[in-house]
Design a protein around this nucleic acid. Structure first.
Lengths: 241, 241
DNA sequence: CTCTGTCAAGAGCAGTGCTCTCGCTTGTGT
DNA sequence: ACACAAGCGAGAGCACTGCTCTTGACAGAG
């Protein structure tokens, strides 16, 4: 018998953790099929449990949703950081932009229910707790890093489309604050174009995942890629044409 | 007694139409409060009816949703066309762009539930029928008209951000087809920048309405206005800086 | 070998979309 | 002027939902 006792993982705790994971797994499966109409009873039935047993693991449907939301952000964040690659390609800013951008779209198409959960319309009675903020911020930061690194390396043209500096001091302060959070320099000139570009990227993914491109654009990879390219130009990631 | 009899509005039909409108009105109120979790029973209760009575007017919850969706698109479309103004300002393309753009945002903020209904995540079991397509297309066309008119009048710079003409023939055909539907010339060079811009506009409104700007950007009117301005530059609506 | 904390199960509450049947009202054709 | 039928609201009922509470079993710790 090994004499481990310090962290005392406790068989009970281990089993409990496994059950929790299993519930999330099945819930995710249901979410993928039925959309945001997630039913605890259906999950329980699928696991051969009685519905009330689930409440031993998640005190409410909202807590389950929160867990799934955090998992979703984490999964997307992981995918984006993976796509961003390691330090060796740190200077390939444009390639990183495309890689990370396409990863958002691909992840969303592969996990439409989770995508709707985290970037779709808010769920009626549900209010996201603060725990979801850091994983959410990580995804935006992953995209931002490509631009921030380029700017820090002096590889960024000035954006031609950005309007002149704002005269609204509060807005300027908010931009500076966002810059710091996302790893840009506090006085970055790229932060506003980047936030614009991110808004656009998520808008495009929304359109595609939520079916707004049906009967209009079928060449969706091309459509998305060209928008990424246009945004790269707008931000200043590409040399002036 | 007036001798009108040709269309025979039929008292019953009139009352029925009024009831239908009343149900939609109450449903909209509930939608605004509880989000997409619309309950027929609650609507009926609010009207002092029994739930089954509603089925005399809408054969299913989906049909009610369809009616609300069509009303939503129509309301937004009306607001946008109103903002676009009449023929007298037909040449004020940039002003029209801002007016129509801001109208989308204002309408969405004033009707968040209806906005979520038509531009948010799809409702789980619901499939939108074809009737919703024309009202939906009208909103996009209303925004597009500002750009199409500018292009037709030769008042549009070439967009600098747009990537070079695509080599994907199918994608090019889809662009031409979209151009025709939205009132652009078939060989319009502005259609792709415009579609990009529209994607961006709806992305920005999504972010704000769905709370993705919370704790980040409070100066939202400024934020949105600057993005509209940037997009105008990208499309070529403003003179080169 | 108890004791105690954890668990699944089941019944139950209030709510949901939807169906069906029952009478009542009311507009309408003869 | 009257009888007919269509349209209507009410109510019961089915299968479902999230959630609560109680009960009884079991397993780890002392």
């Amino acid at each position: 018998m090994s004499a481990e006792k310090a962290p005392a993982p406790s068989i009970r705790a281990r089993v409990r953790a496994e059950m929790t994971e299993e519930i999330k797994r099945v819930a995710l499966k249901h979410l993928a099929q039925d959309g945001s109409a997630l039913s605890l009873r259906a999950v329980a039935r699928d696991m051969g449990m009685v519905s009330s047993a689930i409440y031993r693991y998640f005190p409410s449907r909202d807590e389950l949703l929160t867990a799934l939301i955090i998992d979703g952000y984490t999964s997307l964040g992981d995918a984006m950081e993976d796509a961003d690659g390691n330090a060796e390609r740190r200077d390939a800013h444009l390639a990183r932009w495309f890689a990370v951008g396409h990863t958002i779209r691909k992840w969303a198409l592969a996990h439409p229910a989770e995508y709707a959960l985290i970037y779709g319309s808010p769920i009626p009675g549900y209010h996201a707790p603060m725990d979801t903020v850091p994983p959410a911020a990580r995804t935006l930061a992953a995209l931002g890093r490509c631009v921030a690194d380029a700017e820090a390396a002096g590889k960024l043209r000035d954006s031609d489309a950005t309007p002149p500096p704002t005269e609204n001091a509060e807005y300027a302060a908010e931009l500076r604050s966002a810059a710091v959070v996302l790893g840009f320099a506090e006085d970055s000139r790229a932060i506003e174009p980047f936030l614009s570009a991110a808004t656009h990227v998520y808008g495009a993914v929304n359109f595609e995942v939520f079916g707004r491109l049906n009967n209009a654009i079928d060449q969706r990879s091309e459509w998305f890629d060209r928008q990424l390219r246009q945004l790269a130009t707008m931000i200043g990631l590409t040399p002036r044409p």
